[in-house]
Design a protein around this nucleic acid. Structure first.
Length: 782
DNA sequence: GGTTAGGGTTTG
């Protein structure tokens, strides 16, 4: 006995009936014949309600109509089902369905009504009959998923073997995704990029009028299976697009979690092979796809950041036509208090008591434009993942009485970087974990601590707030400095007035405020320092670099120096009037060219914009020129190596340049670190440093101290800041906190620092200077 | 059956 569901795509059933079965049409049915290996097919024209026979056996009767109406006189037949088969068919079979039945017994109707007089009927045996119910693949026919017992064989194409124009089935790990959003057309859209063990990536444009049929992806690394994906070409790249009958399964990507598909399909195949494929992809993805690094707790957010947040919605308000306010929490305390978005009285949805109770733990998110409709539909209490949420520091304006930095949270319009909101189901493992965590937060205890925590925020008023501190919080209180000492904590604090009276060299621990600092402009504080001769120089301006490069580009590259055992060379000619020649030398690894991401290249005749473009693609770029015997470093006035966003310079005084063939020593290990490259080329690399003067004041005196720092003090690499807006904003934020403009010095935060004094002798006199060491900015501020 | 979007942050 069995009821099978057969998926029908484009009118074609996905499984074949067993070959021994033979079709009979209604007219050929004859009493007394053996129908063991025969089947009939038709459309269900009526289903009677499921009833019970006298002995309690379930009974179902349906009327089947022959599909092809060749024989109008005999085009329907009754089929009788008993027992479990009757119960199952009652659940699954609907009027209008196409069904096939086999293993029946033909008998004459026992009824004597006029209409059914002399009619035949099929009696289905609970043990020997089989019913195949055909289902159009997008039709939902049952509340419970039912697996096909006749399994169609699907083949899955590796992502590196996709052919334009084909319709394929694929598996992949999610590399990127945009949660479904309303397109400008009729459908929802979700963009999903997947990768598999072939290391190929496929970006898919998935459309559906029905939100439920799009894959239910929650995070990067989830595993998906797509059936009937059309492969087409767009802008010289292959892409996947939904086509008729598209369906998907999504699996949690985390290793070791149960392999349970997320899908709206009520019927789907899932074999042990599928299970193995998912597990293998999970292992591969764990090593090759960086998981959602953007998933961050509120306690870890930075002042200027895009990230994904998993949270609970506690309040909601329409602010104006183009934005909605969401009040959410994740149980952790943000490093800065949230801004408070204003809204009209009465427009806030949510439990007022709870919103009030959680006010210090919730953040206000403003949601704009295309996300507004979805935001409006959200239920209070639901668990959300908000993708690519943006934090900004709220400017302190004179109007605002608060002197505390606040964080703004924005979900901007558009869908870039997958920006959007997704409601997570209660049984999602991240939600379960979040719920456990939210339940464990002791709000009462938290509120007692609130005053102390305000000190964290309000470091600028820590002077007057120390009265609040209870003994148990003493340790935290002692750290209420905007800086942290990394060593020598045994040293006692020395007043600045005492330091000013003493000889050098000495080391001191001090506690003071930053009255002033120079230079005020950040870019002026970044310099290049030679660790050998200790010279300091300015970071060259782009226009100076361009001049050197332009000059060098007029020189002819030497063809004799092209294509050696170390590198392959390509000569490109620019298309402008001067027809400048650019030569790119691709350094090989053991004689073999590698993918651009790991390949070091040398460039002759390239201008700044070209070098900049190439540095995005290749592991590193070395500007070179032809000399008599070998390629050599172009000029130490320009970087000897451009790697990512860092431009590495060498010291003109200390370097003793060697030619490019010396890179041979590094090839085997492909150790293309700036230090190794510099060493091989005889270059003493210059370090990027912040050089600043702090005027410190502790009330007993003021002292000018130098800060020279690569990245320890601010925990921001000086080598990257000039090319990073985000780092620059972080740095500005730190300086803003240390020395808040428009405030009295009493409101400034304390800095605990180590300083060392040393003697500097110039032509006329000896002077004592001071320098900060072993001190870093407190993590709360970063 | 065609359209939508075609990954690569707003500027509130």
């Amino acid at each position: 006995m069995a009821v099978h569901l057969v998926k029908e795509v484009n009118g074609v059933p996905e499984v074949q009936l067993p070959s021994y079965l033979e079709e009979v049409d209604f007219r050929s049915l004859q009493l007394g014949c053996d129908y063991t290996n025969k089947f009939i097919q038709g459309t269900v024209s009526f289903i009677y309600p499921l009833t019970q026979l006298g002995d309690g056996t379930a009974f179902l009767k349906i009327i089947l109509q022959e599909k092809e109406k060749f024989h109008p006189e005999i085009n329907t037949i009754n089929i009788l089902f008993f027992g479990n088969l009757a119960e199952q068919c009652a659940k699954i079979v609907h009027q209008g369905d196409t069904i096939i039945v086999t293993g029946f017994v033909l008998e004459e109707t026992s009824y004597s009504s006029e209409r059914e007089k002399n009619c035949l009927q099929l009696k289905m045996s609970p043990n020997e009959s089989t019913v195949y119910v055909y289902v159009k693949c997008d039709t939902v026919i049952s509340e419970e998923p039912i697996c096909l017992s006749v399994t169609p064989k699907y083949t899955y194409t590796p992502l590196n073997q996709l052919k334009h124009g084909s319709v394929v089935n694929v598996y992949g790990a999610v590399k990127f995704f945009k949660p479904p959003y309303r397109s400008r057309g009729t459908d929802y859209c979700s963009v999903v990029s997947i990768m598999d063990q072939s290391n190929a990536k496929l970006t898919c444009m998935l459309f559906s009028v029905n939100l439920d049929t799009l894959p239910v992806i929650y995070k990067i690394g989830d595993i998906v299976r797509f059936h009937r994906l059309k492969i087409q070409q767009y802008k010289n790249e292959i892409q996947g697009v939904t086509t008729v009958g598209f369906s998907s399964l999504t699996f949690e990507g985390t290793l070791g979690t149960p392999v349970i598909p997320r899908t709206s399909s009520k019927i789907y195949t899932f074999t042990s092979d599928d299970q193995k494929t998912v597990e293998a992809l999970r292992v591969w993805a764990a090593h090759h796809i960086s998981s959602s690094g953007a998933l961050i707790k509120l306690s870890d957010v930075k002042a200027m950041q895009f990230f994904d947040l998993t949270c609970e919605l506690v309040g909601k308000a329409e602010v104006d036509g183009s934005s909605v306010l969401l009040k959410v929490w994740d149980g952790t305390k943000p490093p800065f208090p949230s801004w408070k978005v204003l809204f009209e009285d009465g427009s806030l949805e949510g439990d007022a008591d709870r919103i009030n109770q959680l006010q210090n733990l919730t953040v206000d998110i403003l949601v704009y434009d295309n996300h507004v409709a979805l935001a409006k539909s959200l239920q209070i209490g639901s668990f959300l993942r908000i993708y690519s949420l943006h934090t900004k520091i709220q400017p302190i304006t004179p109007k605002k009485q608060s002197n505390i930095a606040h964080l703004e949270f924005h979900l901007h319009g558009g869908t870039c970087y997958g920006r959007g909101i997704k409601v997570l189901p209660e049984n999602n493992c991240d939600v379960e974990e979040l719920k456990r965590f939210l339940d464990s937060v002791d709000l009462a205890e938290y509120q007692q601590l609130e005053n102390i925590c305000d000190l964290d925020y309000n470091i600028s008023s820590s002077f007057s707030s120390q009265d609040f501190v209870s003994p148990c919080d003493l340790e935290r209180c002692q750290q209420l400095s905007a800086t942290v000492l990394t060593d020598h904590q045994y040293l006692e604090t020395t007043p600045l007035s005492a330091i000013l009276k003493r000889d050098a060299p000495q080391q001191y621990r001090i506690r003071a405020k930053l009255r002033n600092y120079e230079p005020q402009k950040l870019y002026q504080s970044v310099k290049l320092h030679c660790p050998k001769c200790h010279s300091l120089q300015e970071v060259p301006h782009e226009s100076d670099l361009e001049l050197v490069l332009q000059e060098a580009a007029t020189e002819q590259p030497d063809p004799k120096l092209q294509n050696t055992s170390l590198y392959n060379s390509e000569v490109w000619t620019t298309q402008n009037q001067q027809e400048r020649k650019i030569v790119i030398h691709f350094i090989k690894n053991d004689g073999i060219l590698q993918v651009p991401e790991v390949t070091l290249i040398m460039i002759e005749g390239g201008l700044l914009s070209e070098i900049y473009q190439l540095s995005k693609k290749f592991k590193g770029v070395i500007p070179v020129k032809s000399s008599q015997e070998d390629l050599i470093v172009l000029d130490l006035a320009v970087p000897f190596l451009i790697q990512g966003k860092t431009w590495h310079y060498g010291c003109k005084q200390c370097s003793k340049l060697k030619t490019m063939q010396n890179l041979n020593s590094l090839v085997k290990e492909a150790s293309w670190t700036p230090v190794c490259i510099a060493e091989a080329l005889g270059i003493v690399p210059l370090q990027y440093v912040f050089v600043m003067t702090f005027t410190l004041d502790d009330g007993t005196g003021t002292l000018k101290v130098y800060l020279m720092d690569c990245e320890k003090f601010f925990q921001i690499p000086a080598s990257e800041i000039l090319n990073s807006d985000d780092l620059q904003k972080n740095m500005e934020m730190i300086m803003y906190m240390l020395c808040p403009p428009g405030k009295k010095i009493g409101e400034y935060p304390w800095l605990e620092c180590f300083i060392k004094s040393y003697n500097v002798r110039n032509e006329v006199e000896q002077e004592i200077c001071y320098r900060i060491f072993d001190t870093v900015i407190a993590e709360d501020l970063i």
